[in-house]
Amino acid sequence: MTTRLAFLGGIYSNYHALRAALDDIDRRGVDATYFLGDLGAFGPFPDRVPELLIERGIRGIQGNYEESLSSGATDCNCGYTDPRDNFYAQISYDYTAERTSAPYKRWMGELPKSIRLEIGGLRVLLSHGSPRKINEFLWRSTSPEPFLNRICDEHGADVILCTHSGLHWHKQIGPRRHVVNVGVIGRPANDGRTNVWYTMLTAGGDGLDVEFIPIDYDHAALAREMRNEKLPEEFIETIETGWWTTCLEILPAKERAASRF
């Protein structure tokens, strides 16, 4: 028997991409779809994402955004360390906090911090940043195998799924052990392309298959709405060009070298 599951990383209020991804998932057919948190951030009209998720019956977990919004925190607790990153993160958060309605904030507070599943005999753990910290960044070039092995051991998981950093990757660290950053559908993967990514897991007889699926969506419409909402031109440039212009000081050397800015 084969099980297919779809995972949506940070949505960042990009409800256009969310809709496109959900339509794509419906076309392919899955057993279930999950979101991994950070429903709000760079984009406009933050209520539209929870509205759509609830309407389609998608389950998921809190990101640092949902934790902050539901607790009335004054910042996103994104985990940035450079003032340039924090400056733009605050603009995003203030916009989102002001426009997220109270019932959705309460709903966010009721989301679990993690979900455990068992598929094909594998123990799968859904987390936002990492299983140990909601705002930890797991980048490919700074998450070596010995470290990932330890995290799997410490959390009793064969497969760890995370998002938060914005870049998708997969490391198989043993015959039945995987760590997957499912990427994000909120903004492009800093590669000069406007599409975003979600992740499909297929568990069957021969273990686990991990597939990253690109999603094209009406990014021009999103950019127009962001402009009307007077969101920073830097955020819009990322949507239009596929290159990150903000919140990138946190990138490690290798990922930064591949970045335009």
């Binding site: 700074t142 998450s143 010995p146 470290f147 092995n149 330890r150 995290i151």
Partner: peptide, 9 residues
């Protein structure tokens, strides 16, 4: 030793 302890960086 660090490898066995799962050191990250």
């Amino acid at each position: 030793e660090a490898k066995a302890l799962g050191v990250r960086d």
